[in-house]
């Protein structure tokens, strides 16, 4: 088991080093997410007042869209110099490779959220500091669920010619429950009278999704990676 997490950590560390040197994913995803929030702010904010319940939806749309960008590139990088083959050739548990990749994507998506949550708060007057614990839990559980499915599909499509088109087509229908739970949970926190039990319900549901999706991904990653 320690070997499993050692391998996963090696992958995370390597991906972070590559990202720190290239800044390719951080810059593109942050820019794209911020742009999403800004465009929606023009559409849904009139005379300084935002449309009711818009903030949660826009936050999760920005997270989902920018997350798709990150997911598409995470395995694309391994394909360019065929380093994926070298990873698969190593005597490591292949699910550990998946967990390493997943953690890298989660870290990147969380970094994007650190920047766009205040933006949503600013443009949509969303009370982001009202229940920081609940909002943090929603964002974390939603991000894990979304990234778990996305990382698996990105790995599965790495050799497909039309992978850029196929990833969102496959990912969004499966990840819809995560996005709905995220939107409804966030709306419960942001509404005029916060509904904490409702927010907790959606967090529990997201936790359930996370367990199911991560388990399924760990189970299917090895056969998917063997051609």
């Amino acid at each position: 088991m320690t070997d499993f997490f050692r391998i996963a950590w090696l992958i995370v560390k390597k991906d972070l080093t590559v990202e720190i040197r290239s800044l390719e994913l951080v810059l593109t995803t942050v820019f794209f997410a911020a742009l999403c929030v800004l465009v929606f702010a023009f559409a849904f904010v009139e005379e300084g007042r935002a449309l009711d319940h818009a903030a949660g939806g826009i936050l999760w749309i920005a997270i989902a869209f920018s997350g798709t960008l990150a997911l598409g590139r995470t395995f694309e990088r391994e394909r360019q110099a065929e380093t994926l083959r070298a990873l698969l050739l190593a005597p490591a548990d292949r699910p550990a490779l998946y967990v390493g990749k997943l953690l890298g994507v989660i870290l990147l998506m969380l970094l994007v959220q650190v920047l766009i949550v205040p933006l949503v708060g600013l443009f949509f007057q969303a009370p982001i500091f009202r229940h920081p614990g609940l909002l943090g839990a929603l964002l974390l559980t939603g991000t894990i669920g979304y990234a778990a499915v996305g990382t698996l599909f990105a790995a599965m499509l790495v050799r497909a010619r039309s992978r850029d088109v196929m990833l969102p087509i496959l990912l969004y229908p499966i990840a819809v429950p995560v996005i709905i739970a995220g939107v409804r949970g966030t709306a419960a926190i942001f509404q005029a009278t916060p509904d904490e039990p409702m927010a907790r319900f959606w967090i529990t549901l997201l936790l359930f999704f996370d367990v199911v999706f991560v388990t399924l991904a760990l189970w299917t990653f090895e056969p998917l990676m063997t051609e």
Binding site: K14, A81, T83, L89, P91
Partner: peptide, 18 residues
């Protein structure tokens, strides 16, 4: 078994940023 195999492909399996 994979621990006893080594492969050098036409692509070099190296990370250019490292």
């Amino acid at each position: 078994l994979r621990a006893r195999l080594g492969m050098l492909g036409h692509d070099l399996y190296l990370y250019p940023e490292l």
